[in-house]
């Protein structure tokens, strides 16, 4: 039995030490995952906290993760990200238009990077939810195909196909933004 699974089973028995260990282990990764998709620290912290709050509620209902705790947390975080953008006004087109390739100063560089990041987030949001997850987990969280397949509950082959289509679509989106 793996250490992660033992940790999860202890948490299911409401072992406070295990529950704390889970938070300290997975919260930073979930925060990074959310931040890279949202770009706001405060919101990312709030959504991270909300992810773990839902984890506790799921444990109470005995509906929490049975095996892959990290995958369950990433899916919850992804849903929160989707909900976050669903409730907010659609800024995709505006974000794509914000990028100014003509900046030259350092301050302009930072601003340009921020604009590029925002452009990238806007491009990601144009993908399907599953494609967004695959791209984020594969290229931002640096997870292997097998890990992503485990988290998303798919086969490695399907993750490869999703990845391929996502990258192609993302390329087209970014090329379209570059053309503007």
């Amino acid at each position: 039995m793996s250490d992660k699974l033992q940790l999860l089973q202890r948490a299911q028995r409401w072992d406070e030490q295990a529950l704390t260990e889970i938070y300290d282990t997975y919260a930073p990764a979930i925060y990074r995952y959310i931040y890279r998709r949202i770009g706001n620290a405060q919101t990312s912290q709030d959504l991270t906290a909300e992810t773990f709050r839902r984890f506790l509620e799921a444990l109470k209902r005995s509906a929490g993760p049975s095996e892959h705790l990290s995958g369950w947390l990433y899916r919850v975080a992804h849903n929160l990200i989707v909900d976050h953008y669903r409730g907010a006004p659609d800024q995709t087109e505006a974000s794509l238009e914000m990028v100014d390739p003509m900046v030259t100063t350092a301050e302009d560089v930072d601003l340009a990077l921020e604009h590029r990041a925002e452009l990238a987030r806007a491009a990601l949001r144009m993908l399907t939810p599953l494609q967004q997850q695959v791209v984020t987990l594969r290229y931002l969280e640096d997870l292997s195909l097998q890990e992503v397949a485990t988290i998303l509950g798919r086969t490695v082959g399907s993750i490869k196909a999703l990845q391929h289509r996502a990258v192609s679509l993302l390329q087209q989106i970014l090329e379209g933004s570059d053309d503007r």
Partner: peptide, 28 residues
């Protein structure tokens, strides 16, 4: 262009430690 866009997403702002600890305590 995809590589550059994803690279722009890699930097992560450090969370507010006070808020972080508060969230952690609230979780416990």
């Amino acid at each position: 262009n995809v590589a550059r866009a994803l690279e722009a997403l890699r930097p992560v702002a450090q969370p507010d430690p006070i808020v972080w600890q508060e969230n952690r305590r609230s979780y416990i």
